[in-house]
Design a protein around this nucleic acid. Structure first.
Lengths: 243, 243
DNA sequence: GTGTACAGGACATGGGACGTCCTTTGTCTT
DNA sequence: AAGACAAAGGACGTCCCATGTCCTGTACAC
């Protein structure tokens, strides 16, 4: 993973792995019992008894699994196998991004890079699978974005929706989730920095241009315009970070 | 994020957000105090007192932050701001992949798709930034892989190393971490399924071909061979899942 | 039949006690 | 004087128990 100093790696072995082992045991218990999304897990007390560990210990692992999006905990009702949920990543990545901004903002830039690579790299495949229906969805999102821009409202939601729908043809939930995470992290970092004034009209125009390239099914042009879109985001982030 | 049934979203509000709020408070405490990677956090007791919540409650949040890779907990010594670490994602995604394999293995396939898009989409940029030194690293990895194949040893580590080094020129830690996560998840899913017989020589040959395209700085060819590499992985996964 | 009140179950939180582990420090030996 | 060993202290790990909070389902009254 990352370069771990040898001095540190000797430490944290027994406790660390026991905790992880407990999480794994719970996950395997779910798999073994054939529980599916939405099914209820045993109660905390039952798990505590079955796994032979205290309830608090179980709870810590349970909380981790919840943060990882594996289970969903509903106060007073029970615990359930969760549907796909990557919101956990958001807070972790946001923290890391903000932490890095204190130095040179490298990690925040890396995040933009990854998003740029993913989106501009995949728009071709998305265009291949694009149906008229997808195109109509995309167009309605653009109209909504334009309306919002005219009213001076924030475009964040429409922006997110645009990118989400752009890759909907790929039918890849993991991808959508990942891009959503990146998007939210970028947004939160931006907010934490105190966003400068945004040019709503220009933002809408840029998305229109991307849409037009997609509608024309011009993969190269769409990819290039997406690249430029992200170049702009990167510059903006750099400006704000410098200020 | 994902479609959350309205019936569920009404639930889990107070407890959920309080827990998340506590995590956020701890993260902001880190940011406010200017703690950097490797610095020590207050002790659990101190945090408990400062934040005005019980130690058990603090510990649950702390465990989550550890799972998110925000902090590192060293038994008997203290807690520290962690270096980049995405290993947390691995277990969560692995679980999700295994869960999906019971149905149609869609999510596992999606994971391959994302990895394929990332790698074949980024190899061009990597080649642009490739230095002779990077190339030498890559070649030595290939030799190591070949040796292992000749001895009949597993290639997993060398395989991972190859892909890691292939994108080293991009100098993007986030990307490397993400790809590592995907790679490990794939491997664990594969292991959980009970991997069939693997053709070591063929595996090494495929990587040699990719290496040759990279060495020749032929972006299109490298991208195409990476695509084929992943197509093969996808087929194999499908076979194993069907069995 | 509908709406409200109550009881039960389950998670949330807090506090305390004890165990385990790691680091440091100090002493003893060589 | 340098190194090895041992003890002490601090901090996390695990556990129990008590109480609060929340949700669901049922039973009762209207």
């Amino acid at each position: 993973m990352t370069a771990t100093p040898a001095a540190v790696s000797s430490a944290r072995f027994s406790a660390q792995i026991r905790s992880q082992a407990l999480q794994t045991r719970i996950m395997e218990l779910i798999l073994e019992r054939g529980l599916d999304v939405g099914d209820a897990l045993p109660t905390e007390s039952e798990l505590s008894a079955e796994l032979g560990v205290g309830r608090n210990t179980v709870r810590e692992s349970l909380k981790v699994l919840q943060a990882l999006g594996v289970i969903e905990i509903r106060h007073g009702f029970g615990m359930f196998v969760a549907p796909n949920n990557f919101s956990a990543l958001v807070s972790g990545l946001t923290f890391r991004g903000r932490l890095s901004l204190r130095h040179k903002g490298e990690e925040a830039m890396e995040l933009i890079d990854v998003r740029q690579a993913l989106e501009s790299g995949l728009v071709g495949s998305a265009i291949d699978l694009l149906t008229d229906e997808h195109l109509a969805d995309l167009r309605s999102t653009m109209h909504a974005m334009e309306d919002a821009a005219a009213k001076g409202e924030s475009l964040v939601e429409h922006d997110a929706e645009f990118h989400r729908r752009l890759y909907a043809p790929l039918n890849n939930e993991l991808l959508i989730n990942l891009m959503d995470v990146f998007w939210q992290v970028y947004r939160q970092i931006h907010e934490a920095l105190g966003s400068g004034p945004v040019n709503l009209e220009e933002q809408a125009r840029i998305h229109w241009e991307i849409y037009e390239a997609v509608e024309a099914r011009d993969k190269a042009l769409a990819s290039e315009r997406l690249q430029r879109h992200f170049d702009g985001i990167r510059l903006k982030l750099k400006d704000v970070a410098a200020a």
